[in-house]
């Protein structure tokens, strides 16, 4: 089992993601440089948070054209596992590996704080081991996290159980107050139809160590590992 974490110029959660996979879980984890095309046999690719290429255009809009993304797109189309967190989610949408876009938060401000999430499906490796009634405390840190897609796309996502998580209150209620950025249907993360490409705005890698006072993010990593190790 080998993980890869992409490093774009401007990525800044790459080391945090590597830290969790390598030091918390003990798996071999490689940093994949944006100018390369070789995925070095990684079984699961993370696209981390940050500001790829400065994100001065639309978030993720430049990163999708990088050499490494060509290989990742081919890898994903071949059924390989790819997960984007925050900026990584934006990159995957721009690369059309996931439907929809991430718009500017409805508050028009960058927001960094703990929010609450609940799984919307158990039918993915990411959420399979997370009980449907659990409420996860996971931080967000983004200015463009308002998930948006046209009505047909949203309906298809809902129908196919492609919604991974929704923003909720501490007690699990999904409502407008619990929605930190104005995302449609409180969507915090989705997967593709093939259920091998995942994107979420919240940062589970920031909630995976006891010294940070929050290990809820481990539920997500645990679920991935349990199910991948079973299938591989």
């Amino acid at each position: 089992m080998k993980f890869g974490v992409v490093v774009f110029p401007g990525s800044n959660c790459d080391q945090d993601t590597i830290n969790v996979l390598r030091n918390v879980y003990g798996y071999e984890t490689l940093a994949l440089w944006h100018k390369d095309t070789d995925l070095h046999g990684c079984d699961f690719i993370f696209i981390p948070g940050g500001f790829s290429y400065g994100d001065y255009l639309r978030c993720g809009a430049v990163a999708r054209f990088s050499p490494i993304m060509e290989s990742i797109i081919a890898f994903a189309k071949n059924g390989g596992y790819v997960m984007g967190i925050c900026n990584g989610f934006q990159v995957l949408c721009e690369a059309h590996l996931l439907p929809g876009v991430l718009l500017r938060n409805d508050s028009q401000k960058f927001i960094c704080k703990n929010i609450f999430l609940k799984p919307a499906t158990n039918n993915t490796i990411l959420t399979q081991n997370i009980p449907m009634d659990s409420v996860l405390k996971i931080p967000i840190a983004h200015a463009e996290g308002r998930y948006f897609a046209d009505e047909a796309t949203i309906n298809a996502l809902e129908k196919n159980n492609q919604i991974l998580f929704r923003y909720c209150n501490e007690d699990g209620t999904v409502n407008a107050v619990a929605n930190p950025n104005g995302a449609i249907n409180n969507i915090a993360g989705i997967c593709n139809e093939g259920r091998n490409v995942f994107g979420m705005m919240p940062h589970p890698e920031r909630a995976a160590e006891i010294h940070l006072g929050n290990t809820d993010g481990r539920l997500i990593f645990d679920s991935i590992l349990n199910n991948i190790l079973q299938t591989s």
Binding site: N12, C13, Q15, D16, N19, V20, G49, K109, F110, I111, C112, N114, P139, A141, H203, E205, R206, E209, H211, L212, G213, N214
Partner: peptide, 13 residues
């Protein structure tokens, strides 16, 4: 409006 947690060393969150 500040990212207070990147680098995952902030124990105050």
């Amino acid at each position: 409006q500040y990212d207070s947690m990147v680098q995952t060393n902030t124990t105050n969150t």
